[in-house]
Amino acid sequence: MKKHSVLPGFGLTMGFTLLYLGLLVLIPLSMAFLKASSLSWDQFWHIVTAPRVLASYRLSFGASFAAALINAGFGLLVAWVLVRYSFPGRAIVDGLVDLPFALPTAVGGLALTATYAPTGWIGAKLAAVGIKAAYSPLGVVIALTFIGLPFVVRTVQPVLVDLEREVEEAAATLGANRLQTFRQIILPAVFPSVLTGFALAFARALGEYGSVVFISGNMPMRTEIVPLLIMTKLDQFDYAGATAIAVVMLVISFGLLFAINILQWLNARRLSAA
């Protein structure tokens, strides 16, 4: 198991960590599996592949993916601007990036709905050109973009700070133009962190509930997200059905996070080998 170390406290801290995780994470989450196991495999499969549930996977995954993609692109841009350019108010903007993380999701949902509804500041302008923002899949993407915004920025920013300018200079001296430098020097360096940020934003968006239900309109087959369906099933006293869908989501979440951690580990190895 553990390699030898002269430092004390492994038993104590590891024991406490495992105990706490066991009590607070493992046992509670295994309840979902236990409850779902009251279903036969056929019943389980029937519930998690019902057309409405499939439609909600499509929306949840599609919208989360779109939002994470938007955040990957714009997050990289925002990080670049914050690190490389100086402009008045930079410190304020830098601080604001974390706001979606600190703001209660219900408040975020209310604010976004008030902004993007046809009567809202931005929604009115979008409605004028025929774009329906709130109460459509686009509304879901907007909410998920909002909550995922900090992740790419915050994972890319430190990498950009540490990026050595000498390499860029060298590239320029060798005749590369700025775009080439960006594509061949900067992008490969920041790409792993963009990917990590993307995956974090994606994982977070999949489970988001509070902010989305206000803005989505909750139309069956069109704007119902997976957590809403779990809630719907609970409200019908259908615990087994709710936990069946929850189990699917839990497995996916765990898989995604595991992939992120492996990715970071591989990346760390690549860097230290280089």
Binding site: T17, L21, M31, A32, P227, I230, T243, M249, L250, N261
Partner: peptide, 23 residues
């Protein structure tokens, strides 16, 4: 282990509330 620590962050809040009711 790290993934397990991260898990509550990615679990839907609806599910996290539900499992405590089940418990």
């Amino acid at each position: 282990l790290i993934t397990l620590i991260d898990l509550p962050f990615a679990v839907s809040p609806v599910i996290s509330g539900m499992v405590f009711v089940l418990l």
